[in-house]
Each structure stands twice: as structure tokens, then as C-alpha cells.
Design a protein around this nucleic acid. Structure first.
Length: 621
DNA sequence: CATGAAAGCGCC
DNA sequence: AAAGGGCGCTTTCATG
């Protein structure tokens, strides 16, 4: 059963229980998803076998309770607890730091498995406790801040904290069995940091963004007109009897019989006018037909296919030009303003700390990890008054880590002696002295270096860089003649991944692969085996690098001597964006860089860790 | 009309 | 034999 708490006189038993246990199951009910604009309605706590439901609208000493839990270092168990932390932080000013998240733990235990796998609370209750949770309490409270509580709401709310401890215990035994304790610990320490980062958001200067929008909107319209005009001038309209014939060839959808007959009666001289209005070059299906009419032999309109065929002023040039602006206007235009928080005026994206199979973050609402790298866009994300933005990123984190985990002496030697690794690779590829490497040769060296991390083949080199198959084959051969130990490592690691059906980062993060028994044929099996090896090897490097930046974030946060004067704002895979008080920004930068280097160095052996940084009024690399 | 897949492309 | 890793957002298009 449960006990409802509405005022201070009712907390005696709760305080007594707090002295007897270190484990608290916790959940909140709110009127919506945004801590800045929505209302905290209930806080449910389960300690030992007692469930307390605090009506946060009436109970005035919530800050006291949360501070007590925080200061006595109780472990707070929740499901997607980042959400709860943000609401509690907003309502009490206290950020709980000792947490266990059942959802995050489950994600960690299944990293890489079954796409779209979503560990909901009801799923875990069924899985670990064998209980069917018939209804989610959350929905009852949405947009219902003034709800009058009846037994129904209270029972549902109590249910949400009822099984968390049991789930945690079962998960912990799995975590130990899988030897995931260290990475688990890393994730749980990171979690509250992200709650605060998301809660605080980053300043956004709408005027900078919208002046780009205005400029790009003109460019978009021009480029669209250019493309359509070019198309209509370069295909033979006279061969079509009427507009319907033309629409079929262009694959413009004609959905009704009525429209069809109208088009059939539209004679040749009116086709152009109609076409100008109805051709949609955002439709790649249509563009593919345009290209065929213009004599290009292509089966896709993707940039990798089109780029080699691009010539200044031809249709492909015009389409690619249009697409560039279309992206800017649609994803990075007016729509983006809807992410400005009504209360704070800032952007509060979500960071999903195990948003990927490899252990990298993902970001959404908005995705702050794919904002155009142009200075002009990033200038819209600015420091608060009296503050500066520090941008700090690892230099070639993945390549350094690849050198270290493989033990490849040539890579180690290059970094130890501060050589340009891409140039060094070029010396192997083209049998030249490092001082005589041309720009083009260095570029190919770079392509190969990154390609290797991704498990590229000679076909991939053709597809991505247009390097002919024969040349690609030679380049790969020479690459591995130069980096023999790396080649051995890749082969060994691939065999291990395929044998174990998981791969593992230096910190111990695992990425799992499905066991598939039944293959239709050897071809299918070979295909899967290749994929597992490729993705598994990549996980060691990509996931290993992710571990390092996560560790750095933890060290920066928990050792921060500057308090409120230094804050993490964003994370972009190998880069941190922070904000610091102007007067002490140099010291803050030194501290951040030091912590990042210290997090990376233990994984690099002899290879020196390296961090680049900048200090500006806005986000810039 | 709603929904989901696919294509395409922004970032590291 | 297959043929570069990891994401999220926007648009079109097919389906029910």
C-alpha cells in the first residue's frame, strides 16, 4: 500500500525509513515533458516495503527531502531517471547524483541488439518480475496539473516504483556476469551531468540564425528556378501530345481521374507552364527521371552518384546546388525556432547517453550534434553575458586510439614524433618521402586512414572516393604493407568478434551481435560475418573514444573547482562546448584541457593525448 | 488522413 | 560471395 504526504506533519515514517535504507525507488508524475514549463505533480518514493506519494503541489518542503537524500548519498533508482532529476532540480534546486537507471542499464546490457529495442518499464517488469503493468500512470497526468487525486491515480503512481528494486537486482547480476561494472559505473555517474546540461540548455541568437535563413531562402528559390528552367530547356517537349503524357514520363503523381483528364486536354503549348508549377525537384523519384531524360545512366540521385557527374552549370550541378539550400532551409531554418524554450529562450536538446550501438551519444529535439560546421551557423549559439564559450576537442582521437590498441609501431612512432599521420600513410601508398607528399596524396592517405576505422574495401573506396577498383586494391595492399601490425590486429579482432559475438572497448564496453543459426546460403552467412567483423572492429575504436570523452566529462564535472562559473553546454562526440565566466576563462580552459588529456592518456600508451581548443563569444572550432 | 519506410544529407 | 562506422531530421511516397 501507499501513504500520501501533503504536509510536513506526515513525514515521520518516511524519515525513519530513510535512516534504515540506502536504496530509494523514485518516480515523478508531471503535467508534461518540459521541466521549465510543466508542473511537478507527484513524487513517489519506495523505501523498504513502504511507498510514499508526495503531492508536490501541496508539500512545501520538497527541497529538504531531496537535499537529505542527496547528502546522505542514497542510491536513487528510477526508470529514465534523467527526466525525474530535471523536474526535481527545477523544483528544489538539488541535483541528485547517486542514481541507478533501469532503462539505461537495460540499454547497456543490450548494446547493439535488435534495432528499435526499447526497454520500457512495463517491458522490464514483465521480463524481470513476471508482472504485467496494465497501464502507464504518466498519461493520466499529462496536461492535468490540477488533477484531484483518487485511488485510481494513486495506485497507478505507486505501481511505478513498486518493482524498480527487483529489476535493479536482476540487472546487476547480469552486469557483473557480463563484466560491465566499470562501464556501468561510468554511465551512471554521467547521467546527472546530462540532466543538468539539458536543463540549462544553451543560449541561442535567433537574429543570427534568421538572417542566414533570409539569405538562403532567396538562394533556394533561385536555385530551384534555375534547375527547372534548365530541365525544360533541355528536354524535347514537342514529343508529348499532352500534359498527362509528360507527367507520366516525369513521374509526377496524378491522383484523380479528373486531374488526368484535365491534363490530357492540356495541349503541348501549355505543357511548359503547367510543368513549371508542378515539377518537384525535392522528389528524388522525379529527379531520377529527369536525369534519365537528360541521358544520364544512373540508378540513384545520391550525392555520391551525382558528384562525379557534376559539371559547372549542368543539371546535376543545379540539383546539388538546390539541395544544399533545401537542407539549410528545412532542417536549419524556421523549423529550428520551434525548439526555443518558451520559458528560458534557450535551446534544450536531449542527449541520449547510450543513443548508439557503439556507446556514443545521440542528440535530438533538436539534434545539436549535426549543426552545420560553418562558423555562420554556430555563431548563433552564444555565451551568456559576462561569459565565454570554450570549445575543446580531441585531436584525431580515433586514429590515436587505433594506434594504441593495435600496437602498430608505425602509428605510434608517427604520433610520438608529432608527424602528420595522413602524410605518413601517403609515404606507404605512393613510395614517396614524407616531405614530398603532395596535397592529393595526403588526401588519399587521410581517406584510407579513416576508411580503415570503418572497415572499408576496394569497393567502398570506389563508391565513396571514386578511386578505381584496381587502384583501390593496390592502395589497400600498400597500406597494410606499411602497417603490418595493424593488419594483424584487425584480423585478430575480427576473429574474436565473430567467435564471441560481441566486441569490447578498452574500458570494457560491449557491443553485442545477434546469433543467427539459419542462413539461407553461404553468401548470406559471409555477408553477416563480414558485417559483424566490420562493425565490431569499428566499435572498439568508436566506442573506445566515446568512453574517453565520457570519462573526461565526469572528471570535469565532479572535480570542477569553479562551481557555477564553469558549465558543460554540449557534447559532439570528440568535442565539448563549455561556458565559463570571462574573468577566469583561461583557468577554466586549462582545467578542461587537463582533464580531457588525463582521461585520454591512459588509453594511449606511448602516444601523446592531444586536445585543441578555442575561446570565443560563441561556439566555434 | 495517419503512419512508416526509404532516400537524402547534416555532423563526428 | 559483400563491399565504410555511428546518428536524427525532413521530405516524398506507398499503404491502409
Amino acid at each position: 500500500m501507499y501513504k500520501v504526504i501533503e504536509n510536513i506533519s506526515q513525514i515521520g515514517e518516511l524519515l525513519k525509513d530513510l535512516q534504515s535504507t540506502n536504496l530509494i525507488s523514485l518516480d515523478v508524475e508531471t503535467s508534461g515533458l518540459d521541466p521549465h514549463t510543466d508542473t511537478l505533480i507527484l513524487l513517489q518514493l519506495k523505501l523498504l516495503n513502504n511507498t510514499y506519494i508526495i503531492d508536490a503541489r501541496k508539500f512545501k518542503q520538497l527541497d529538504y527531502i531531496i537535499a537529505l537524500i542527496k547528502e546522505t548519498h542514497k542510491t536513487v533508482i528510477g526508470h529514465n531517471i534523467k527526466f525525474d532529476l530535471k523536474f526535481l532540480y527545477h523544483n528544489t534546486g538539488e541535483l541528485l547524483l547517486d542514481v541507478y537507471d533501469t532503462q539505461l542499464a537495460e540499454t547497456l546490457l543490450h548494446a547493439g541488439l535488435s534495432r528499435g529495442f526499447y526497454p520500457s518499464l512495463s517491458f522490464l517488469c514483465k521480463e524481470y518480475v513476471g508482472v504485467n503493468m496494465d497501464k502507464d500512470a504518466r498519461e493520466i497526468f499529462i496536461d492535468n496539473a490540477d488533477i484531484i487525486l483518487t485511488e485510481k491515480e494513486l495506485i497507478y503512481s505507486a505501481m511505478d516504483v513498486n518493482y524498480l528494486l527487483k529489476i535493479m537486482e536482476s540487472q546487476m547480476s547480469k552486469i557483473r556476469k557480463e563484466d560491465l561494472l566499470e562501464v556501468f559505473d561510468l554511465e551512471m555517474k554521467l547521467l546527472p551531468i546530462l540532466a543538468q546540461v539539458e536543463y540549462e540548455g544553451i543560449n541561442f541568437l535567433e537574429s543570427v540564425w534568421m538572417s542566414l535563413y533570409g539569405k538562403n531562402l532567396d538562394e533556394l528559390k533561385n536555385s530551384e528556378m534555375n534547375a527547372i528552367n534548365y530541365l525544360l530547356e533541355n528536354i524535347d517537349i514537342s514529343k508529348y501530345k499532352n500534359a498527362y503524357e509528360f507527367s507520366k514520363d516525369l513521374d509526377i503523381r496524378v491522383t484523380t481521374k479528373k486531374l488526368q483528364s484535365e491534363l490530357e486536354s492540356l495541349q503541348t503549348e501549355y505543357i511548359l507552364e503547367w510543368a513549371k508549377k508542378n515539377i518537384n525537384i525535392k522528389s528524388n523519384k522525379q529527379v531520377l527521371n529527369h536525369l534519365k531524360l537528360l541521358g544520364f545512366d544512373v540508378n540513384s540521385t545520391g550525392i555520391l552518384v551525382l558528384k562525379p557527374l557534376r559539371e559547372k552549370g549542368n543539371y546535376i550541378d543545379k540539383i546539388l546546388n538546390f539541395r544544399e539550400y533545401e537542407k539549410k532551409i528545412s532542417t536549419y531554418g524556421e523549423n529550428f525556432l520551434s525548439y526555443i524554450n518558451k520559458n528560458t529562450g534557450k535551446i534544450h536538446c536531449e542527449f541520449n547517453q547510450i543513443g548508439t550501438a557503439t556507446g556514443r551519444f545521440s542528440s535530438d529535439s533538436p539534434n545539436m550534434q549535426n549543426i552545420p560546421a560553418d562558423q555562420e551557423y554556430r555563431k548563433a549559439f552564444i555565451a551568456s553575458p559576462g561569459c565565454k564559450i570554450i570549445t575543446a576537442d580531441y585531436s584525431q582521437a580515433e586514429l590515436r586510439l587505433m594506434g594504441a590498441v593495435s600496437g602498430e609501431p608505425e602509428i605510434i612512432h608517427a604520433y610520438v614524433n608529432d608527424q602528420d599521420l595522413h602524410k605518413k600513410t601517403a609515404t606507404f601508398l605512393f613510395d614517396v618521402d614524407i616531405d614530398n607528399v603532395t596535397k592529393e596524396q595526403r588526401q588519399k592517405g587521410k581517406n584510407l586512414n579513416f576508411g580503415i576505422i570503418y572497415g572499408i574495401s576496394k569497393f567502398g573506396l570506389l563508391h565513396t572516393f571514386g578511386i578505381p577498383i584496381e587502384e583501390g586494391e593496390v592502395l589497400l595492399y600498400k597500406y597494410f604493407q606499411g602497417y603490418k601490425v595493424l593488419k594483424e590486429f584487425i584480423e585478430y579482432a575480427g576473429d574474436m568478434v565473430w567467435k564471441n559475438l560481441y566486441s569490447i572497448t578498452p574500458l570494457g564496453r560491449k557491443r553485442f551481435f545477434e546469433e543467427i543459426d539459419l542462413f539461407e546460403n553461404n553468401k548470406e552467412k559471409f555477408k553477416y560475418e563480414s558485417r559483424v567483423k566490420r562493425e565490431g572492429i569499428n566499435h572498439i575504436i568508436q566506442g573506445g573514444s566515446a568512453d574517453i570523452l565520457k570519462q573526461a566529462m565526469i572528471d570535469i564535472y565532479y572535480d570542477n573547482p569553479f562551481g557555477e562559473d564553469l558549465k558543460i553546454r554540449l557534447q559532439v562526440h570528440d568535442e565539448l562546448v563549455l561556458e565559463a565566466k570571462e574573468e577566469i576563462v583561461e583557468e577554466c580552459k586549462d582545467f578542461v584541457v587537463k582533464k580531457m588529456l588525463e582521461a585520454e592518456q591512459p588509453f594511449l600508451g606511448e602516444i601523446p593525448a592531444k586536445v585543441d581548443y578555442s575561446i570565443e563569444d560563441y561556439w566555434i572550432k
